[in-house]
Amino acid sequence: MLLKLDIVTPYARVYSDTIDTVVLPTKEGEVGILPGHIPLITQVQSGELRITKDGKSIAIVVGDGFAQVIGDRVSVLAQRAIEEEKIDESAVEDALKRAQDALAAAATLNPAEVEHNESIVRYSVAQLGLKRRGK
């Protein structure tokens, strides 16, 4: 039996395919999903989502969001998501720097913006971590 995985963001459907297993980064730590997993709704945290499909492994970096496992459907609802090969290291570094600068001047920001920038930092760090480990 295979799992059906969907990753959607407000801007696009990033991934939609049948897969063997997936590891989700959640607030409580990583959760591995195999076919026949008990129904689950959980909060996803920025990090690496790892997919195994036909013996190969694919990594996708996701932002904060939610995930739902019902039957053989895994749906991930994330603020952002990007596939490994699409990560542009310099762009990520720029984004990271901008977010950190904004956080450094946090006194003038409202809480929503602080939170937004923190989530960008987490997301960027996760992307860089994935990219650099591969080398």
């Binding site: 008990i38 129904p39 689950l40 709704i41 959980t42 909060q43 019902i70 039957g71």
Partner: peptide, 17 residues
Amino acid sequence: PHADDREVLFEPDISEV
């Protein structure tokens, strides 16, 4: 309607989600 009627697990817990 979901085909799956098993008890859903919520993490961390249902109210937090």
